[in-house]
Write a protein that binds this DNA or RNA. Structure first.
Lengths: 128, 128
DNA sequence: CCGAATCCACGGCGATACTG
DNA sequence: CAGTATCGCCGTGGATTCGG
């Protein structure tokens, strides 16, 4: 178990790809608050298209992370919520999100430093 | 802190994209064992191209996750290793990888179930 | 209100060839 | 050994339109 090389590559990658796409994490985060409707999610996720919200929700539903409840009324009413497994995924993802948040400034600094050095080296090339 | 909607989207996504690409996690996992050379990494990561290993390492180096040491000799000798920050990232990523491993079977089952139901519904359509 | 279908732009990534 | 340069494919995802 863990991040030893072969386990990281084999099947785990497949799952990580699923969750690591552009929108899944945000959807999971919002459904972690409570059950929500399609339009509500669309309103809260800035920049997502109707198509991508549908596609993302379908993928999560297929994987058993999100559950979908249809009320056959007019106009249509559909509720989305996290399954128990989805809730555990949210907690696991939290670890990485928290890591990212606490290290953003350090990463920004590293990038600035790296870019600065790259520019310096570029300048030296011009002289020669 | 955590997976509340706005933090998940803002800057954290940027970091998650960086680490969530096709090869970064594997590189980090392997460097977690010990310092390694370019060719050694290339040999151990199945299917990676020379170009992508370079690109991935550059990205991780720029973010301060991997450190690169060049020994100016012939033939060239370059060592790669995790920085302290890189080591903490590896542990955080471990959480998600472990989650994926322990839930793979449950996800597979969910998918099979979903696909079965989809096929049934498709069959009903043909009748009508 | 919720979603399916189609079309298309963009960027990630692989293959290949070349260099100090 | 450790890269860099160039090209082209293809999958992700955005815009738009239509349907129940």
């Amino acid at each position: 178990m863990g991040l030893h090389p072969h386990s990281a590559s084999c099947r785990a990658r497949e799952i990580l790809d699923r969750v690591g796409d552009k929108w899944s994490l945000q959807v999971i985060a919002l459904l972690g608050e409570r059950t929500k409707r399609f339009t509500e999610l669309k309103r809260e996720i800035d920049g997502i298209s109707q198509r991508m919200l549908t596609v993302t929700l379908r993928g999560l539903e297929r994987d058993g992370i999100v559950s979908r409840t249809v009320y056959p009324v007019m106009p249509p009413h559909v509720d989305y919520s996290l399954t128990p497994m989805g809730a555990t995924l949210m907690e696991a993802a939290n670890t990485l999100v928290s890591w990212a948040e606490t290290h953003i400034s350090e990463i920004d600094a590293a990038r600035a430093d790296y870019d600065l050095r790259a520019a310096e080296i570029e300048a030296l090339k011009k002289i020669s």
